[in-house]
Simulated assay, not measured.
Amino acid sequence: MTGAERMRKHRQRLREGTMPIVIDVDAVNLSAFLVAAGHLAADLAEDREAIRAAAEIWIARATCAAAYESVTLSRRALLKSDIDSA
């Protein structure tokens, strides 16, 4: 990839409000999780590109505003039930 291509990708990420991340994970555990959670077909469990794409989609969905709202509402409900039972 040329310097110009890297800069285009960088500017595109800035416009979209996204950022690249690099993390080391156990490939077998990640693959098993994605298959069990329904994000990856079992026959693709050893395809590194399919695993990467599925993990990317899972993270994007887990960090979207709707997912945040869902977690926030669940947390509020738990806190309310703790208060009510005290």
Rank of each mutant, 00 (worst) to 15 (best):
T63L: 13
M19F: 11
I59P: 05
A60N: 08
A50V: 00
A66F: 10
A37S: 12
A41M: 01
Y68A: 15
L78M: 11
R15T: 03
L73Y: 02
V25R: 13
D82L: 15
S85Y: 00
G38R: 05
D43K: 06
S70R: 14
A65E: 15
D24C: 05
A65H: 13
P20H: 03
R8F: 00
A53E: 15
D82W: 08
R8L: 02
A62I: 02
G3R: 04
I21C: 06
A37K: 10
E16K: 10
V28G: 06
V28H: 13
C64S: 14
A66Y: 06
R13K: 04
R13L: 08
A53Q: 15
E46L: 06
A45Y: 00
A86R: 15
I83L: 08
I83H: 00
L34Y: 11
S31Y: 09
I51R: 05
S74Q: 14
P20C: 01
M19H: 07
A41N: 07
L78H: 11
F33E: 10
R76Q: 15
R11D: 03
T72S: 12
R52C: 10
H39W: 13
G17L: 08
M7L: 11
D24V: 10
V35F: 07
I51A: 06
D82H: 10
M1K: 03
A86Q: 09
L14D: 06
Y68T: 14
L78C: 05
A65V: 13
E5Y: 00
I57H: 10
R75N: 12
I51H: 06
L44I: 00
M19E: 13
T72P: 01
L78T: 09
I21Y: 07
L78P: 00
A66E: 15
D47G: 06
S74F: 12
V35C: 10
V71E: 13
M7D: 01
K80Q: 12
K80W: 06
I59V: 15
A86L: 11
A62Y: 05
G38A: 08
V35D: 10
A60V: 06
S85A: 09
A60G: 06
V25T: 07
H39L: 06
G3T: 03
D84G: 00
R61W: 03
V28T: 14
A86S: 03
E5I: 00
M7A: 03
T2Q: 01
I51C: 03
Y68G: 14
S31G: 14
T2S: 09
N29A: 14
L40Q: 07
E46T: 07
K80H: 05
A67H: 04
